[in-house]
Design a protein around this nucleic acid. Structure first.
Lengths: 127, 127
DNA sequence: CGGAATCCCTCGGGATACTG
DNA sequence: CAGTATCCCGAGGGATTCCG
């Protein structure tokens, strides 16, 4: 999103800024897996089965532009490209951990499907 | 309408699950502001200047469906609707705090602008 | 005041094919 | 293996208007 979305409340809302950086459809997963160590392009694909190669490439590029991911190309045949987190990327560990932790609790809690709040007869109250 | 994304790696990736819930364009901000207390619709709009009423309503609905936000309607004239976090929504405090904290550091650090890693070596295609 | 309903356009992102 | 390049569609989201 680095260059697409343009709500530049960049200066005012760090919360959004962070979400903008890690909020892509697959960025959270990519970062999560890279936190465990360096991975080749193909390895990332295996770990994130549903991502298309196009999206994986694109998101990796954006993460690279954001300074979170390092891309190491080896001049070999066949080609080899390894992705790893930059020092700055490593600082996301706590954030990702928080997201994961909360997500686990959330998923576990809502499993039974929380009946949709029927708003047609909205709850009314006086005061 | 507009159910959020539906990549149901729901079981496998809590990180994505969380991002799916708070990753909307304005959800982070909405949650952030609601963490400070109950707010009326109009008050939220003022705090998030760039959001349109349509998007604000839509995102609030999704957050409500996710069980994070409570919507309290008062049968008055003129109408009054107050939004607040549910107990479950409150559990996001730590997550939002982490996002905010990281974002502040990130924004501060990248200010000098980390020149794009131009790999325009063989790249010819422009547009 | 706080929406709901319409219109409409952008662009995220999937599928597929080709390449160094 | 690790990408690029195209095509293309549907969701996301802005602006505007109408309503209880």
């Amino acid at each position: 999103m680095a260059r697409h979305k343009t709500y530049d409340c960049s200066a005012g809302c760090p919360v959004s800024a962070t979400l903008d950086v890690i909020g892509g459809k697959w960025k959270g997963l990519i970062l999560y897996h890279l936190l465990e160590g360096t991975l080749r392009f193909g390895e990332l694909r295996k770990r994130i089965p549903d991502v298309t190669q196009r999206m994986l490439t694109q998101h990796l590029r954006e993460l690279e532009e954001s300074g979170l991911v390092h891309r190491q190309v080896y001049a070999e045949v066949p080609p080899r490209v390894e992705y790893s987190l930059t020092p700055q990327g490593q600082t996301l560990r706590g954030v990702i951990a928080a997201l994961k932790s909360w997500g686990e609790t959330y998923l576990g809690r809502k499993t039974p499907q929380q009946a949709a709040p029927k708003r047609r007869l909205a709850a009314v109250a006086g005061r």
